[in-house]
Design a protein around this nucleic acid. Structure first.
Lengths: 293, 293
DNA sequence: CAATCCCATAACCCTGGTTTATGGGCCAAG
DNA sequence: CTTGGCCCATAAACCAGGGTTATGGGATTG
């Protein structure tokens, strides 16, 4: 019994006539007639008794119809689902990201994405670099967004844009609110240390030591945003990613770049054997534009 | 998404390879390859990522598969069901019959039928001629078996064989156990009256009056089998259908035919707009052979 | 009796799925 | 490094299922 047989049988059974079924299916009457005959031939028993031009379903047809009707609904739900998938109007995105992106980047990207694709489910989770691989392999997320992640085996890494490491300082310390701070200026300030907190810490540490700045500090922090709040309290300066800086701004702090600017890559990670879904890719576009501004 | 697409997708997803799916479906490998490609083209998104010769299902495929799998099961259950219907190994027979057939004919026919078609469900009900039409129209039964039923509007009548009206007599009354009784002999006995009990009563009544036999009796019965038991108690003779007679035999009674034999038709009735199912027809064959002996 | 409706058949056509044949990438073993 | 095996994709030819129009016959209705 082919799909066409099922469709035709269903239509004939519901409309009660071949002509009606033909109209319903937008095909010619002889076509329905022939397909139905073929179905009966292949099934080996009559589905309808032809009596004076009208069709009477046989008891066999009654029995089959209950089954066929179920399948028919299923088929339509498949088609609807595939339509939704095609329009990215169905599915789920399980996202893990470094906390810094949670202040503005992800929320803003998600808000814009939602306007176009309101039916996508999201599952969000913040994660640090060292936990990301675990989250991926345990299928807690399909996609992890990290700052300058090292390559991992079995994981595909794509670029989602660039971030910048900036210096957050209390305005009290630099009343003229400079946009750039030189190594000399930095050397005079108290620095809040975040050197142990992942690749970004190392990056900043290397740069500072290369520039001859003393990086010893008696205030160590492992969360960027905590460091930012420390700066707001006037406890010192801090090298920090710009997203966290912008997301924890206050009127007491200023932002300055390194000279030349110190940038890093933002990466998306997913397992090799679990390729990104189309909706995830669509979402990534929103994320990239959000990052780039 | 065509049925073939679903089949191919299901096979590829479950086997994990195109070659494997081809073997499962008993077709060539390029065929599967092409159909799958066509399905993806028509769906508008990839179902599998081709990576170094191996296929990795996309998340979209995962989502679709849950739906497709349901449908696939349904399809197989349709095919199985249609197979069973074709072999008369599935279905239900709702049968109503005149009580006389319930002693031996129907039970024996049913027993033999069961050996060949063990999975058919039966719903049995005894009915008198005047209630049969109601049972049919109320769909309490698909087929009614009656003695010499008159034609009814909207009901198809078929012949299932012949029955005979015989005379049941106490052996005490005819010790030589005759196989035939003449009108004169009958005239001398006391007759138990069943004349009001449907067409058979009339048939016997007409025959007896034509033969000049007095049919007045002071013992009236409306159920044939009750009359038979009366005869066994030596209360008189009785004209009765042979099936009831044989089904209620005892060593105290004998059976004699009219001369010439008085026969009637046994009919099967069903509604015009509810044609008999194939299993019912198959069962009818068993019934006919059971009646004919 | 004509008009209409419904179904079946006939003759033809076209697309989709099948086949065989072939070639390219990857891997493992010699 | 080469060779053979496995897997997938492509190409070209073929076949059939399902589509079409045209037509005819049985039933019902005005």
């Amino acid at each position: 019994m082919r799909l066409r047989h099922i469709e035709v049988f269903h239509s004939v059974y519901t409309t009660g006539s071949i002509t009606g079924a033909a109209k319903l299916l937008f095909v010619s009457q002889p076509s329905v007639s022939k397909v139905l005959a073929h179905a009966e031939m292949q099934l080996g028993f009559q589905l309808f008794h032809r009596n004076k031009g009208q069709l009477i379903p046989t008891p066999e047809a009654d029995m089959l119809f209950t089954e066929v009707d179920k399948t028919y609904r299923q088929l339509r739900s498949i088609r609807k689902m595939s339509e939704n998938i095609k329009r990215n109007d169905f599915g789920q995105i399980n996202l893990a990201f470094t906390p810094a992106l949670g202040f503005d980047v992800v929320p803003k990207a998600l808000a814009k994405f939602r306007q176009e694709h309101p039916n996508i489910r999201f599952d969000l989770e913040t994660t640090h670099n060292d936990q990301a691989l675990q989250a991926l392999t345990e299928h807690r997320c399909d996609l992890a967004l990290l700052y300058s992640s090292p390559p991992m085996p079995g994981v595909t890494k794509i670029e989602c844009g660039e971030g910048e490491i900036v210096i957050l300082y209390p305005k009290a310390q630099f009343p003229d609110e400079p946009k750039v701070l030189s190594p000399e200026q930095l050397g005079k300030t108290e620095l809040i240390g975040i050197w142990d907190s992942g690749p970004l810490g190392e990056l900043a540490y290397d740069r500072l030591t290369n520039d001859g700045v003393q990086v010893e500090s008696n205030l160590q922090v492992t969360s960027y945003y905590v460091a930012a709040r420390m700066v707001a309290q006037g406890l010192g300066c801090c090298t920090i990613d710009k997203f966290t800086a912008l997301g924890n701004l206050s009127d007491k702090v200023g932002i300055a770049s390194f000279a030349p600017p110190l940038t890093f890559k933002i990466n998306g990670l997913y397992l090799d054997n679990r390729p990104l879904s189309k909706v995830s890719e669509a979402f990534l576009k929103y994320l990239k534009t959000e990052i780039s501004q």
